[in-house]
Design a binder for these strands. Structure first.
Length: 453
DNA sequence: GTAGGGTTAG
């Protein structure tokens, strides 16, 4: 399957999403070439060089937004030549980061221009395909990389694919790609590739295999030794599966290798302790962090806040908030969501709504999780009017429903034996590119609802 | 241009 042909639908979607942006962009004056007469006066090559240098400098300084990148892309493509690859990569990366589907469509324009394909350009393209949920296009692009003879240097492209394959819970397949196929192309997996596999195994609750893989890395004794990310990933996986002793042994192995735990390692340990409401132990680890000069961040504090709420120790939550404030750590969206969830579970819906409404003012716009928490509360109360208003608010603010939101709606409709509505939810999910998950099917089965039964 | 920790549904 060729990328340019099979991504046509994606391009149409991207262009529709940008609201005919391209037409508007053409009408705007160029950012750098203020007078088209200048183009005639200066040589094409000189214009190109100025533009390329400007783009690269602004990119390095982090001064290019998506809109700017789109305008600069139009300008650069008019004069682009073989030297433009680096500047084009900067622009593709910026656009693809915000709107991956648009990144794919820009790549197709690059492919038609007189700019030779480059390994980095392809890796950005593959990243866009994967983020747009089009792994098929990502693999098609990898086919092109192999044909062009870039495979040996395609580490970044492989990383994108490995991550996307693992995200589909197909870590065994990702392992086959990394450990068998990549070496066949003389592309040896690096510590990033291994970390992706380790994380994939842990997510699939195969942390024992992750442990074996990390030991395999050590035993191989090559240049690809596990680092703090690899170890923290597996320690986290083991703890989440309740393998506390194995996690502790691995931490000792890490220290023995001369690798010190960092804020992520500590936060992961604190999270596991909070999860089982071992708050005293979590506080001991927190103190150990301070003693070793590693400062907790908002993720660390959120675990503690959640732990104290779950164990009904609200006064301790107040203490943690004060401690956070003293240490200059601001609450983030997850903090507010944890608070809202606690309030909703205590049936204090109005207070939860107050937090929800105040979030935007605190520069923390509610996300799909915030909406899901509130929607669930309304569903429990059978407040259909509030549910309806909240869904409208989500649409207005461009917050796409996720599995959780749909599940709440499935429960509501299934409880009311509203067969057509339940089927409609499943259809809507698929239209949005969301496959109903085990929880969604489980909901229907648990409610003894069966469309043809 | 690639990797790790926290919040929601059943």
């Amino acid at each position: 399957m060729s990328v340019s042909t099979s991504s046509r639908r994606l391009m149409v979607q991207a262009q529709a999403a940008s609201g005919g942006e391209r037409r508007q962009r053409r009408r705007r004056r160029p950012l750098l070439l203020r007078d088209s007469g200048q183009v005639g006066a200066m040589s094409r090559r000189m214009v190109r060089r100025v533009l390329e240098r400007n783009i690269e400098e602004r990119y390095r300084a982090g001064h290019i937004g998506t809109e700017d990148a789109l305008h600069l892309f139009d300008e650069l493509l008019q004069v682009a030549g073989p030297s433009s690859t680096r500047a084009i990569n900067c622009l593709l990366y910026v656009v693809g980061r915000d709107c991956p589907a648009l990144g794919v469509s820009l790549f197709n324009r690059v492919a038609r221009a007189k700019v030779p394909p480059h390994n980095v350009t392809y890796s950005i393209l593959i990243g866009c395909c994967c983020h747009a949920g089009r792994l098929d296009l990502g693999f098609a692009a990898m086919g092109n990389i192999i044909k062009l003879g870039f495979a040996a240097e395609a580490m970044f492209s492989f990383s994108h694919l490995l991550r996307a394959v693992c995200a589909e819970n197909k870590t065994s397949y990702a392992m086959d790609i990394a450990l068998r196929r990549m070496p066949e192309f003389n592309c040896t997996p690096n510590v990033f590739s291994y970390s992706i596999l380790l994380k994939g195994l842990c997510v699939e609750k195969r942390s024992q295999e992750a442990l074996e893989l990390i030991h395999m890395m050590v035993d191989a004794g090559g240049s690809c030794q596990p680092n703090v990310v690899s170890y923290s990933t597996v320690v986290d996986g083991l703890l989440k599966e309740g393998e506390v002793n194995k996690a502790y042994s691995l931490l000792c192995e890490m220290l023995h290798q001369g690798i010190s735990p960092n804020v992520v390692t500590y936060s992961s340990i604190i999270f596991s302790m909070c999860k089982v409401q071992a708050m005293d132990k979590a506080e001991e680890v927190l103190q150990q962090m301070f003693d070793t000069g590693i400062l907790p961040n908002i993720t660390t504090y959120n675990s503690l806040i959640h732990g104290y709420y779950s164990s009904g120790q609200c006064e301790e939550v107040v203490r943690i908030f004060k401690k956070m404030s003293r240490n200059g750590v601001q609450p983030d969206i997850a903090t507010y969501n944890i608070q809202m969830d606690y309030l909703c579970k205590s049936r204090r819906f109005a207070e939860a709504r107050t937090i929800f409404d105040s979030m935007a003012g605190k520069d923390q716009k509610p996300n799909v999780t915030s909406c899901s928490i509130l929607l669930h509360a309304y569903a429990m109360e059978q407040s259909f009017h509030d549910m309806h208003c909240l869904i409208e608010l989500m649409v207005e603010n461009g917050i796409a429903p996720d599995h959780s939101v749909y599940n709440i709606l499935i429960v509501v409709y299934a409880k009311g034996k509203m067969v057509d509505e339940v089927m409609h939810i499943f259809t809507k999910m698929r239209q949005q590119g969301l496959n109903p998950n085990a929880a969604n099917y489980g909901t229907v089965i648990n409610l003894q609802y069966w469309p043809n039964g």
